[in-house]
Computed example of a mutant assay.
Amino acid sequence: MYYQSEQLQSTIRSIKYKYKNGIVEPVHQHQVCQFIYIKRGVIRVYAQNRCWVIVPSRGLLIPAGIPHSLLAVGNVELRALYIHPEISAEMNDKISILQVSPLLSELINSAAEFEDVIIKGSREERINQLILDELSLMESKDFNVVMPLSAELKVFCERVSNNYDRPWELADVASSLGVSVKTISRKFHLETGLSFGEWLRCFRLLKSMELMASGYSVTDAALAVGYDSQSSFSITFKKRVGISPKFFVSHPKI
Rank of each mutant, 00 (worst) to 15 (best):
Pro167Asn: 03
Ile97Met: 00
Val76Arg: 06
Ser14Cys: 11
Leu81Pro: 01
Pro63Val: 08
Ile108Gly: 10
Leu135Gly: 10
Tyr3Ala: 05
Lys238Gly: 02
Pro63Tyr: 04
Ala64Ile: 02
Thr11Val: 14
Ile23Val: 12
Leu177Tyr: 09
Lys120Ala: 11
Trp199His: 08
Ile119Val: 12
Ile254Thr: 13
Phe143Cys: 14
Phe237Ile: 06
Leu194Asp: 07
Asp228Val: 08
Arg201Thr: 12
His30Asp: 02
Tyr37Ala: 12
Asp165Lys: 15
Asp93Lys: 15
Ile127Ala: 03
Pro102Lys: 03
Gly41His: 10
Pro148Thr: 07
Ser122Ala: 08
Arg58Val: 15
Lys253Asp: 11
Tyr37Pro: 01
Phe248Ile: 00
Gly74Leu: 00
Lys120Gly: 10
Ser122Ile: 09
Ser122His: 12
Glu25Phe: 00
Leu190Glu: 10
Pro252Gln: 01
Gly215Ala: 05
Arg40Val: 04
Arg50Gly: 01
Ser229Met: 10
Arg166Ala: 10
Lys207His: 14
Arg123Tyr: 12
Asn49Ile: 00
Leu71Thr: 06
Tyr2Val: 03
Arg166Cys: 07
Gln129Phe: 12
Asp172Ile: 05
Ser244Thr: 14
Leu135Ala: 07
Cys202Ser: 10
Val42Arg: 10
Arg79Met: 13
Leu98Trp: 15
Glu169Trp: 00
Arg13Cys: 08
His68Asp: 04
Pro102Val: 02
Asp220Trp: 03
Glu125His: 11
His68Arg: 13
Met1Ala: 13
Ile54Asp: 04
Trp168Glu: 06
Pro148Ala: 03
Leu190Ile: 01
Lys39Leu: 09
Phe247Ser: 09
Ile131Ser: 01
Ser234Arg: 01
Val73Ile: 11
Gln9Pro: 01
Pro102Thr: 08
Arg201Lys: 12
Glu106Gln: 14
Arg13Gln: 11
Ile43His: 06
Glu6Thr: 12
Val24Trp: 05
Lys16Thr: 13
Arg204Tyr: 03
Val145Tyr: 05
Phe248Glu: 00
Ala224Gly: 09
Pro102Tyr: 09
Val218Asn: 09
Val218Cys: 12
Val55His: 15
Met212Gln: 15
Tyr227Arg: 09
Ser150Met: 14
Asn92Glu: 14
Glu191Gln: 01
Ala222Gln: 10
Leu61Pro: 07
Gly197Thr: 15
Gly193Thr: 06
Cys33Asp: 14
Tyr216Glu: 08
Ser101Arg: 11
Ile97Phe: 00
Ala72Arg: 11
Lys253Pro: 05
Ala151Cys: 10
Gly41Ile: 08
Ser101Met: 13
Ser88Cys: 07
Pro26His: 12
Ile119Met: 02
Asp142Tyr: 14
Glu106Cys: 11
Ile243Asn: 01
Gln7His: 01
Ala174Leu: 04
Arg126Gln: 14
Tyr17Cys: 00
Leu206Gln: 12
Ile108Asn: 10
Ser176Thr: 07
Ala171Gln: 04
Met212Cys: 15
Trp199Pro: 04
Val249Ala: 02
Lys246Trp: 05
Tyr37Trp: 01
Gly193Met: 05
Asp220Ile: 02
Thr183Glu: 08
Lys246Asp: 11
Ser232Lys: 08
Ser57Val: 13
Gly242Thr: 02
Leu104Asn: 12
Glu115His: 13
Asp228Phe: 05
His84Glu: 11
Phe188Thr: 00
Leu137Pro: 06
Trp52Ser: 06
Phe233Ile: 03
Arg204Asn: 08
Ser161Pro: 02
Ile118Phe: 01
